[in-house]
Write a protein that binds this DNA or RNA. Structure first.
Lengths: 95, 95
DNA sequence: TACATAGTTCAAAGATATTTGAACTATATT
DNA sequence: AATATAGTTCAAATATCTTTGAACTATGTA
């Protein structure tokens, strides 16, 4: 029995998360590195304030597009490609 | 020479267009029928006002997700699957 | 011609999303 | 202990998105 995704809040969250230039740049950056990066490093690279960074990471995380690992003071993020697959690559199957 | 899509207004428009429950329902409906449908029929099916329908169709059209053919008084819409392919199925290639 | 139908446009109102700086928590360093 | 660093939270300001109804254009029909 294969789980069929509906048009859920989940899909909407994913597309909303993708519908912003800063967040797409973050995703692009993460996809090029393909390893964990600290939030601070990304904020610096994107030239955004830490507050703004924190906001965008929360949106990305709640959409399931990144996963987060906390190490002491720092937070490391990495793409969760399975979420991209589910909602983008397999868009028609899940509609 | 293959054209490389940037993180452009175009991508943002597509994701913004997808980030709304009504528009996702419209897309779902169109994908099931797979033929031209009038705007009025969709508005009725979705139970939205014609003004609201007109607004959402414009968003979808400007994102390139539907194409439109005008026949006298009526407007017929159909999905443009190539845009979905470009931005969803081939998301990573175009990033 | 008079009326109906399909869809658009406009501006106002309401709802959401984003940015900002200040204050905060928690950890690290001297 | 004192200071610095990484990140969060909050509320206010701003920007953007969506809905609404009224007025509109264009076409079809009696």
């Amino acid at each position: 029995m294969i789980k069929q995704t509906q048009i859920t809040e989940e899909s909407i969250k994913v597309f909303k998360a993708l519908a912003d230039p800063i967040r797409l740049e973050i995703i692009k950056y993460l996809s090029q590195l393909d390893h964990e990066v600290s939030c601070g490093e990304i904020s610096q690279t994107m030239q955004i304030s830490k507050t703004s960074g924190s906001y965008h990471f929360k949106i990305l995380q709640e959409a399931g597009l990144i996963s987060v690992r906390k190490v002491a003071r720092e937070k490391y993020v990495i793409l969760d490609r399975s979420t991209f697959d589910r909602h983008l690559t397999h868009f028609w199957q899940n509609l």
